[in-house]
Design a protein around this nucleic acid. Sequence first.
DNA 1: CTGAATGCAAAGACTTTGCATCAGC
DNA 2: GCTGATGCAAAGTCTTTGCATTCAG
Lengths: 133, 133
Amino acid sequence: MRTSSVDLIILEALEKGHAHLSSHEVYELIRDRVPAVNPSTVYRSLERLAHNGKISVSDMGTGAEVYESISNGIHHHLVCQNCHRVITLEDDEVRTFFSSIQQKYSFQIVTNHLVLFGICENCRNKDESSAEE
Amino acid sequence: MRTSSVDLIILEALEKGHAHLSSHEVYELIRDRVPAVNPSTVYRSLERLAHNGKISVSDMGTGAEVYESISNGIHHHLVCQNCHRVITLEDDEVRTFFSSIQQKYSFQIVTNHLVLFGICENCRNKDESSAEE
DNA sequence: CTGAATGCAAAGACTTTGCATCAGC
DNA sequence: GCTGATGCAAAGTCTTTGCATTCAG
């Protein structure tokens, strides 16, 4: 079968370690290899890849969905709402949590990229000095 | 001080148990009481309320952010990607998970509404019979 | 008066869709 | 030829912004 050339190029680009790419960033990234590619093709490709479980889709609070290859291993993120630092969470602890939910509610969790927002250690220390609001 | 009349009306509407309202739904809902209200006012109001921790904002996968009053108690949701059923998660178990993350990473989680996507029990049973894809 | 909230309209960002074309089987 | 992928352009949806006006203190 055909398996879409663009799909493969996108997947390859995402696997190269470029994490958390928005559709627009993917678009820009692969234009080196497929100059004539169209944004809508990128969207359609990303949708296919996500549907097939090849990539994860998540909202990092930037206004646009971001995509990431799953083949590099599943992990999750903490995002600092102040400095926008991104901390990677090991899947182990999340999986444990997910397992208990799955059992308790007989609900099979599909979410493969958890993003939690908050304040990182650095910023919390800063905030303590400058009381806000 | 003024505290924005629209803010209060929105908050009241959200507290009345109407959960998971999109900005548009909020807009429609309060038009009964403030006929001339403008969508942009609703956005600005919701932003204020969220910023002040009065309401939670989350992406339920519907394409638009949804808003919910926090005063009714914090809870979280499981959303079935198949039948779109929404299952409420007690905060206890989530809080335990969050606590361990907070300690391990010295990261203060602000996310006050967790949404996990997956397949509910009913749909999983159905899927077993009709092998998909 | 002053600062904040609101209305209005316009723009902006992100995404989807219809249709014609093209490639592979 | 048939099916699915792609390009192109257009529209759609959700949200933000600038500016003038209005309101409370």
